[in-house]
């Protein structure tokens, strides 16, 4: 069993959906974490869900990053723990410097809620290991500030380093202007950090975990996390508080490109309907 923690800031509004996906659909233990908590040692994976933490006042994610829990999240990530930021969670992770770049106002200057197609760019990460490179996933988006931006050097670095995990695309995987819903640079929908243990994306995997909801492709991301733990070779070794010093542990995570890639799967229904944990 993988122990998930779902972090709740004032104004978070996808906490219950994320909890439901992990608890009722994936049958994994999960707890809410209030933003004032500072001890996260009991978890294997932290999720920063979507919403409008602090009402997006000042700037999306700008206030939440100063919540007490964020220092603990930083230590957790530094120790190699898996951190997933969805939508507002992604915005908070960029504000906190755990992920490079920033999320700006959509180019249409309007909120967008729709289903989008996403091309998997790197399947060799703990969050995409059940996908294959080039696979097209379908997920909902719902955001007003989702335009990914980074300075040219950062952009080049994350591209070369395989940190771009998902790009908005057409249903056949081509990158087109129409398929980019918010004007993101390089059609970027999700990125990870250099060590591949922190992942942020604007689409909502927790909103597509059962066919009745219009699709179950979100499980490719969420179940990749389980898959990662199912293979002991891929389990990240973390230093718990009171244990070894919280130094960087670079060895425990797959490096870009040489992690085990699962056999290709079709984009439709390979993971079946929701409800059955792996």
């Amino acid at each position: 069993m993988i122990r998930f923690g779902v972090i709740v800031f004032p104004g978070t509004n996808c906490d219950a959906d994320t909890f439901h996906a992990i608890d009722a659909v994936m049958k994994q233990p999960v707890e809410y974490i209030w933003h004032q908590e500072a001890s996260l040692d009991r978890f294997d994976c932290l999720i920063l869900p979507g919403g409008f933490s602090y009402g997006d006042h000042l700037r999306a994610g700008a206030i939440a990053r100063f919540s007490p829990v964020m220092q603990a999240v930083e230590r957790f990530a530094e120790a190699g723990g898996l951190v997933l930021g969805i939508c507002n969670g992604f915005q908070i992770l960029t504000e906190a410097g755990l992920l490079p770049g920033a999320l700006l106002r959509n180019d249409a200057l309007q909120f967008r809620c729709k289903w989008v197609d996403l091309r998997v760019e790197n399947a060799a990460t703990p969050f995409t290991s059940l996908c294959h490179s080039g696979q097209v996933l379908r997920m909902p988006i719902a955001h007003g500030d989702g335009r990914y931006f980074a300075d040219p050097d950062t952009l080049r670095r994350i591209e070369e380093n395989g940190q771009v995990l998902l790009r908005y695309c057409a249903p056949d995987g081509r990158l087109t202007e129409e398929s980019n819903p918010n004007g993101s640079l390089n059609a970027i929908a999700g990125i990870c950090n250099d060590r591949r243990n922190v992942f942020g994306l604007m689409p909502h995997p927790e909103r597509c975990v059962e066919p009745a909801l219009g699709g179950a492709d979100g499980l490719y991301v969420l179940k990749s996390i389980l898959d990662n733990f199912a293979d002991p070779a891929k389990v990240p070794v973390r230093h718990h508080a009171g244990g070894a010093p919280a130094g960087r542990d670079e060895s425990s995570l797959p490096e870009g490109g040489d992690g085990a890639i699962l056999p290709p799967r079709s984009s439709n229904g390979a993971l079946g309907s929701g409800g059955s944990g792996r």
């Binding site: 219950a16 909120f111 909103r207 909801l213």
Partner: peptide, 13 residues
Amino acid sequence: YQQYDHTVQTNTL
């Protein structure tokens, strides 16, 4: 309606 979040709460069938 694309300006309204209609998928949050994951009940919208």
